[in-house]
Amino acid sequence: MTTSQYGASAAGAVPQYPLTYPPVVVAHKLCRRYGSGEAAVTALDEVDIAFGTGRFAAVMGASGSGKSTLLHLLAALDRPTSGTVVVDGTDLGALDERRLTRLRREKIGFVFQAFNLLPVLDAEENILLPLSLAHERADRDWFDQLVTTMGIADRLRHRPSQLSGGQQQRVAVARALIGRPAVIFADEPTGNLDSRASDDVLTLMRQAVDELEQTVVMVTHDAHAASYAHDLVVLADGRVAHHGQIGTREAVLQVVQGGK
């Protein structure tokens, strides 16, 4: 256990990050085990964590550390073995399948690593998809502001196959923001992009938080990407090893490497 990449400190008391912002996502004693009996694997082990409104948080960790599992549980894509998740005041455990779908639609935005867009819809239709599914009208001003911010205003009639990888991800970010969700979960949003396109997308996500007052929780294994965030969470072996404010890439690397 203690020989993990993130150092011995992870096994001890977790430094509690003073949450100065009202929490929008709160997990309590969150557990997720896969399989049963001898073969059971604990991906998340009694995790307590909260994410503040209007913040950009990066979740890091080695593969197998539980960072993707955490994201899936927080985003109502998967159900925990035990523990609770509260998103914007709603306890996910109390929701049935139908209400979970509605919650995803109304309170959560997603940006995945790849395959964010439906190939049969153009950029605008993809952005409006969550609203269309809910039979809701888009707020045109908000839409215009988003596509302008994301720099895709002249690409709205294009289908995903006609867009570059960076443009596709920017459309995906706009799609995630269109419904003004309580929180956006991003899973390695720049994993498939070159560094320039990556920087663009990360800058835009940070802008969305700073200027448009959105909340983003991003899973990444890339310290550079994490350096765009306000807060950093490091997971190791299914537990929270670090939770704190960050600034530069160097600072992030320092935390991740456990002061080596």
Binding site: E97, R98, R104, E106, F112, F115, P119, L133
Partner: peptide, 16 residues
């Protein structure tokens, strides 16, 4: 599969 998963993630119900 992936498209359907995406649709479900962004809020499409099973019915849809």
């Amino acid at each position: 599969k992936r498209e359907l998963g995406l649709l479900r993630a962004v809020g499409a119900s099973r019915r849809q």
